[in-house]
Simulated assay, not measured.
Amino acid sequence: MKNLLALITFVLISVSTSSEAKNIYADVQVTDVTPKSEYIWERANQNTPKYPVELARSGIRGCAVLSFNVSDSGETENIEILKSVPKKQLGKASRKMLKKWKWVPASTVGETQSEKRTLRLDFCMGGESTEQAQNACKQQTKLACN
């Protein structure tokens, strides 16, 4: 998507606690910090970014703002963590996730060139259903990430 919300979805993660498994509902939202009507690149895989297992096991939720370049060949480069709340661990996991993303031209018209992007990734967990986790994450995106 080329809108303010690039992706909204959920992931169900099972985390072992003691001798029984506990379902944790989680949601990851990706938002363009500086949305515009035309982007040169869009993510090749529009599936949901998976909530990092190490963050889920630690109960870490929050947001990260990352700046990066998409090269003229569609590779993610020069990733910089601008903000990471509440912990550096979230920023590092976000950078690792973003590093794997591949990009494809958003339009078949014109030549491709590199593009500077800034994205916010919100990581939310909790509630008793997927819908509750998604609603909590939608509310979180309205808050400042600082």
Rank of each mutant, 00 (worst) to 15 (best):
residue 125 M to K: 08
residue 68 F to A: 12
residue 107 S to M: 07
residue 71 S to C: 06
residue 88 K to C: 05
residue 98 L to C: 02
residue 67 S to M: 08
residue 103 W to G: 08
residue 124 C to E: 13
residue 71 S to Q: 10
residue 124 C to L: 00
residue 70 V to C: 05
residue 72 D to F: 05
residue 121 L to E: 04
residue 109 V to S: 13
residue 128 E to G: 14
residue 101 W to I: 09
residue 78 N to F: 03
residue 128 E to Y: 07
residue 115 E to S: 07
residue 106 A to M: 08
residue 75 E to D: 12
residue 65 V to C: 02
residue 110 G to Y: 08
residue 74 G to S: 04
residue 78 N to K: 14
residue 115 E to N: 09
residue 126 G to C: 10
residue 77 E to G: 00
residue 74 G to R: 06
residue 109 V to Q: 13
residue 120 R to K: 15
residue 90 L to C: 06
residue 105 P to S: 07
residue 65 V to N: 07
residue 83 K to T: 11
residue 91 G to I: 02
residue 80 E to I: 08
residue 92 K to S: 11
residue 91 G to L: 09
residue 67 S to T: 06
residue 123 F to A: 10
residue 67 S to G: 12
residue 105 P to R: 14
residue 78 N to M: 04
residue 101 W to Y: 02
residue 104 V to L: 09
residue 123 F to E: 00
residue 112 T to Y: 03
residue 90 L to P: 10
residue 104 V to C: 00
residue 123 F to L: 14
residue 116 K to E: 14
residue 108 T to N: 15
residue 68 F to P: 07
residue 111 E to S: 09
residue 81 I to D: 08
residue 112 T to V: 14
residue 128 E to N: 15
residue 64 A to D: 02
residue 84 S to Y: 02
residue 94 S to W: 09
residue 75 E to V: 03
residue 110 G to F: 09
residue 89 Q to H: 08
residue 129 S to W: 01
residue 105 P to A: 11
residue 120 R to M: 13
residue 74 G to K: 07
residue 73 S to D: 11
residue 69 N to S: 13
residue 115 E to T: 01
residue 98 L to V: 13
residue 121 L to M: 09
residue 112 T to I: 08
residue 98 L to A: 06
residue 96 K to N: 06
